[in-house]
Simulated scan of single mutants.
Amino acid sequence: MPRSLLVPLALAVALPLVTAPAAGADVLITELPGLPGYPTHRTVGVNDLGQVIGAAYGNGPPRGVHWTPGGAAVDLGTGNPRAINQRGQVLVVEAKSSVGPYVNQPRIWQAGAVVDITPRGSGWVVAEAINAAGEVPMTYSTSSSGYHQERAAVWRGGRHEALPLSEPHLFVDAVNDAGVVVGSKVPMFAGDRYAFRCAGTTCTRLATTPGTDAYQLSAINEAGVVVGNKDGQALRWEGDAVTVLSPDGRVANGPQALNERGDVVGVTTDASGVRRATLWPGGGKPVLLDVPGPAEAVAVNDRGDVLGWSSADDPDAPRAFLWRNGKRTWLGSLGGAHSLPVALNNRGVAVGESTTAGGVLKAVKWTVADERPLR
């Protein structure tokens, strides 16, 4: 396969190394360049501008990477990128110390500018999401001597806005563009385990389901629909009601488990005990995707395209696919057996990782042709 020459830039360290047709005629797979000296790179997300984020590993602390739409790699410094919004703002969280004192600090990167959003007096800060306005929900310990998430806040309008929640353990998992935050609470010892929704500084409990496990929320859309999991059940909240999507399944992790149409993706276990990639259309019956199991769906975009993987051929080598309008397309690899997708945008660009024929793991993006107009 042809390889492009490396082009030195001030921040962009390289151009795409490999571009070639994948298994399907309408799919192009591109190897994303790595940071020099780092053998392993993984992607985390992609926005509709075609900007990709991920991290480089294997040479000291991990470093964040931002890939431009043209494929150039920008070094974001030490830390792990967690999310990117449609404006190109990247949420990065850096573990300064994880063995005591416990110090974990978030920041927002955009076009080379960095804003530290660490709450004053905090220790271990957990932040996983950023919305289109640059708002970031977070939980944190009140000192570096412990790692229990005792407080919650939202970085909003250049300052921290405290949420009326306290005591461990708090989790804030997702935020929509209206600034509505969802999360869950797990008491350290006895007490209620519940999921909650916060609009501004008003937090209310979500409807409950039977069981003893903690709630794990994945996503909220602009209509206020929330999805998550508990006790091996895939759940959907709408208004004051909760629906069990599957009594033996799981909603995918992350904001792309749910789209603006109300479609949800994840996995269910069929009667034979095989994990099947599943789509729960908004207002419709569940659909087991035409993909051999074991398989999982990991993301759905606003057009209804579903991204996922199957390990039916080899349990140690997942194989990436895109499901569109009832048709499955294998996305292909860089020559190896392993291709694992993680995120998908509304323009048909998916990102993930793949092995080369020599077994080396690389960050990749797949561009899938789509003749439908983008609304």
Results as ranks from 00 to 15, higher is better:
Trp124His: 12
Arg156Val: 09
Glu161Tyr: 09
Trp155Lys: 05
Ala127His: 09
Val115Met: 09
Thr78Ser: 13
Arg82Glu: 15
Glu94Ser: 14
Ala111Leu: 12
Gly146Val: 06
Val114Lys: 09
Met138Pro: 00
Ala111Trp: 07
Lys96Arg: 14
Tyr147Thr: 04
Asn85Cys: 11
Ala83Gln: 15
Asn85Met: 14
Arg151Ile: 01
His160Ile: 04
Val126Glu: 10
Ser98His: 08
Tyr147Ser: 12
Val154Gly: 01
Gly88Trp: 13
Trp124Gln: 08
Thr139Asp: 02
Arg82Lys: 15
Ala113Trp: 01
Gly157Val: 07
Glu94Phe: 04
Gly146Tyr: 00
Val93Pro: 11
Tyr102Met: 02
Trp155Leu: 09
Ile108Arg: 09
Lys96Thr: 06
Glu150Asn: 05
Pro119Tyr: 03
Glu150Pro: 08
Ser145His: 05
His148Gln: 13
Val93His: 02
Arg107Glu: 12
Leu76His: 13
Lys96Cys: 03
Arg151Val: 00
Val115Asp: 13
Ala83Phe: 14
Ala83Met: 13
Pro137Lys: 06
Thr78His: 13
Gly146Met: 03
Val154Asn: 10
Ile108Ala: 06
Ala153Ser: 14
Val93Thr: 14
Ile117His: 06
Asn85Ala: 07
Gly134Val: 02
Arg87Ala: 12
Gln105Gly: 03
Val90Tyr: 08
Glu161Gly: 01
Val92Asp: 09
Tyr147Phe: 15
Arg107Thr: 04
Val92Lys: 05
Gly134Trp: 07
Tyr102Asn: 05
Pro137Asp: 12
Ser144Arg: 14
Trp109Met: 03
Ser97Glu: 05
Trp124Met: 02
Pro101Met: 08
Arg87Ile: 00
Met138His: 01
Pro81Asn: 11
Gly158Tyr: 01
Gly123Lys: 04
Pro81Leu: 06
Thr142Pro: 00
Tyr147His: 11
Tyr147Met: 06
Pro101Gly: 00
Glu161Asn: 11
Val126Trp: 11
Pro119Asp: 09
Ala127Gly: 02
Ser143Met: 03
His148Gly: 10
Thr78Glu: 15
Gly123Ile: 07
Val125His: 09
Thr118Val: 03
Val99Asn: 11
